[in-house]
Amino acid sequence: MDLGYSDILDGLRASGRFRQLKPLSGRDGCRLNVTADRALLNLSSNDYLGIAGNREHVEFFYSGLNRENSLESFRLGSTSSRLLSGDCEQMHLLEKELAEAYGFEAALFFNSGYHANIGILPALLGKHDLILTDKLNHASIHDGIRLCRATYKRYRHCDYAHLEKLIQQHRDTYQRVVIITESVFSMDGDVADLSELVRIKEKYDCLLYLDEAHAVGVWGQTGLGKAQEFGVLDKIDLLVGPFGKACASMGAFVLSNAEIHDYLVNTSRSLIFTTALPPVIASWNLYVFRLIQQMGNERKHLIELSVQLRESLLEYGLRTAGSTNIVPVVIGENKATVSAANSLQEDGYLIFPVRPPTVPEGTARFRLSLTADMQWTDLAPLAARIAKAVGPLHRAGAER
């Protein structure tokens, strides 16, 4: 039976956008052993603090396993939703510590950042509300917005004059207005101006919804994210923090007041109608959350690496941007990006091409993701290798 998808798939192949799943194994720190004698430097991981690839952390965590706690703290299946029999004491302890550390009244844990964003927004917002979202927010945020009955408008990326103009035009028409932004943007490595967003939200009586997916663990004095670094934690109305990146696990929390917490427990479909995460994940998350608050040296080292790599890329005329440990290298054309990625993998670097629709048309790129278990000796040759792989036509300032 011809279902009509083959032509579309052929088109994806022809345009350099076809994607395939690629199983990888042999993780060892910041490297993946693709063969017995060949390891690639993993520049495509969100393991920003190097926890997932650290055998000592994993072994220490499991050293606490014994016959008495194997089912309570290390059980591999919850077998039910949290509102039935799938809840556990470890998850409540984790939520309590999260709320206390951040200074919020309550925390609620979801199965993933995607579950959080598609579950929170439709539950809280309806046809009398307006959402104003940064154009480059993550797909999970946009999908959550689409599930809402609320009206939404996108403001230009980090363009707060445009945001303020939209609020001035529409604020009086809606009951609630919610500004949604990420703190660190995942494809450009740039940062939202949280101080300016707080000013705008207070001036116009809006709510501020902040997704700290790529900031938790990496930024802030104790790794609580950009809101901590900016000193505005007490000004954020809803703060989402996924555990699948620097925290080397899975799940995501939302911090809020007690009223919103209780309302979400009773109305958020992605929380109510899904099997809960197992106790072993809650236990690991609690271990990691306590750990990241002590990793100031790793955070400092990671940012130093990021500065060095950006400077090196610019020296070779490559197009980069941002100010975080997510370092983009914009190439432009899809097929050239795919070809260069393949070449770099042959050189020992695990780099994948990022293409539309993940990024805007004409901006296919590498997304170099640095982790704290890397050293500068690992990265020093990289800019020269990329410049060679992409060729002169895809460097900054080159004539087309």
Rank of each mutant, 00 (worst) to 15 (best):
C88I: 13
L76T: 05
I120W: 11
F109L: 09
Y114S: 05
Y48N: 01
R67E: 12
D37L: 01
R67F: 08
T79N: 11
L108P: 09
D87E: 14
L41P: 02
Y114T: 14
G77I: 08
D37W: 01
R75F: 13
A116D: 15
G103Q: 13
A116F: 12
S44K: 13
L94G: 09
S81P: 05
E89N: 02
N66G: 15
S63G: 06
G113L: 10
D47E: 12
S112D: 01
F61W: 11
N69D: 12
R55H: 03
V58G: 03
S81E: 04
N42W: 06
R38I: 01
F109N: 05
L43W: 02
N117M: 14
E89W: 09
L71C: 09
M91K: 03
F110R: 00
T35C: 01
L121Y: 03
Y62N: 09
E100V: 02
R82M: 08
D47L: 10
S112Q: 04
A52Y: 12
R38G: 00
K96P: 03
I120Y: 11
Y102G: 00
L93F: 01
G50Q: 11
S80G: 04
L43S: 04
A39L: 07
S73D: 13
H92Q: 11
M91Y: 06
L43Q: 07
N66S: 14
A106N: 12
E105S: 10
D47C: 10
E89G: 07
D47T: 13
E100W: 02
E59F: 14
L76K: 06
G119N: 12
R55N: 00
A106Y: 10
S81R: 09
G50W: 05
A106D: 12
T79H: 10
S44A: 14
H57W: 15
L71D: 10
H115C: 12
P122I: 15
R55G: 00
L121M: 13
H92R: 11
R75V: 06
S44N: 12
S44F: 08
Y48I: 00
M91T: 10
E72W: 10
E68V: 15
S44D: 11
T79V: 04
A52H: 11
H92Y: 12
N66Y: 06
F109G: 06
S44R: 10
M91A: 10
G103E: 13
T35F: 05
N111E: 11
G119H: 08
T79S: 13
G50H: 09
F104C: 08
G77A: 06
A36H: 14
G64W: 10
Y102S: 02
Q90L: 13
F110T: 00
A107D: 04
R38L: 06
T35I: 01
A99Y: 04
R55W: 00
H57G: 00
E89H: 04
R82L: 02
L121Q: 07
R38S: 09
G64Q: 10
A106C: 15
E56K: 15
Y62G: 01
Y48P: 00
A52M: 05
L76S: 06
K96V: 06
L83G: 04
L65Y: 15
G113R: 11
G86A: 02
E59D: 15
